[in-house]
Design a protein around this nucleic acid. Structure first.
Lengths: 182, 182
DNA sequence: TTTTTATGATATAGTGTGTCTCATAATATA
DNA sequence: TATATTATGAGACACACTATATCATAAAAA
């Protein structure tokens, strides 16, 4: 499919917008391809000329955000600040909600970011707690916190959530992992 | 359906075992009712004489474990010890894996246990971090840790996981929530 | 042994997926 | 602008799964 063709861009854009809207309304699993094409006002068969199945469309929609998001979640030391992370989530809140609603992509996000964090932790002295567990804990807890925030209609500002994130997750874990170096 | 009838007990038990086995093999969502009845060697139509749908069977299978599990997850202060929690998970690891594999029941577990934990936290002095956030953090992180342990074939003994749970989650969070009372 | 009832087998209607074909309209290109 | 290209819409189709209904039979309770 030639993305320079205006029709192709229009079709894929309509399908993407419909998937996001429907997923926010009733959850990813409950959305059917028929509904997507009806909402997008696109022929049913046309869907399969662009994507293998529903997951194919989802992957395409979230490709960019998934990469950026993983970058923000790795290195939970000094590289990324909490407020930065939560401002990003706020700006992309619809797409991030769709992302976290998908079991498969959520797990992919966690395992990729965990691997990065393990590398980061291995640079520093060890602790009683296995690095793989601490890394998974930090990443999974971060996603849980973001998920809670989005599912509760973002009741606190992004700056405050960023500070809470740093205290409750980053500092709390680092305090246990890297206790007084001498 | 009369549970005193031997045939009823046999049918429901076969369906339950088949659901657990198939879910562990390929994930809950991928399991069809046809597969369940074939694996259980039960007529397809018979399934619906006992359960409305797949979720109905799942609910029945996990009813007891869900209740016990919620009790173990609430009150993360002194009532439940980490080793006790992880020994329980170990003894019921197959059913717990099925439980955590279901989006719906996982969320129900988190929100119920979170509510209990909020009550517990409200007995003590406040902190900069909202109680609802801290409670959700503790519960969600506990489940993430358990999930990691089960999905990695329980590489560490339950006792050690219990200690890690207390350090990484309970103590770390309480240390931030209830900093020196004087 | 007799009565009750859960089960198996089968048919059926409804819904969603994924593929295919053909006429048409939108687009790119010369 | 004219022409060739190609994405689209509409419809038919095979397939899989859900959910319900019926009836003879086997298993259980009484």
């Amino acid at each position: 499919m030639d993305m320079r063709d205006r029709r192709v861009r229009r079709t894929q854009h309509s399908l993407a917008k419909a998937l996001i809207a429907l997923t926010l309304e009733k959850g990813y699993d409950a959305v059917t391809i028929r509904e997507i094409t009806e909402r997008a006002d696109i022929g049913y068969a046309t869907f399969f000329r662009h994507y293998r199945d529903k997951d194919g469309l989802l992957k395409d929609v979230l490709d960019v955000v998934l990469t950026e998001f993983i970058d923000l979640l790795r290195n939970p030391d000094a590289t990324t600040t909490g407020p930065l992370l939560f401002r990003y989530v706020e700006q992309n809140h619809e797409v991030v909600r769709v992302l976290l609603n998908s079991n498969h992509l959520r797990q992919q996000l966690i395992s990729t970011a965990t691997q990065s964090t393990i590398q980061e932790y291995n640079k520093y002295p060890q602790s009683k707690i296995p690095v793989e567990i601490a890394a998974h804990h930090v990443v999974a807890a971060s996603i849980s916190l973001i998920d809670w925030w989005l599912e509760h209609q973002m009741p606190y500002p992004a700056e405050q959530m960023g500070i809470i994130y740093e205290e409750l997750i980053v500092n709390a874990t680092n305090g246990i992992m890297f206790q007084q170096p001498e």
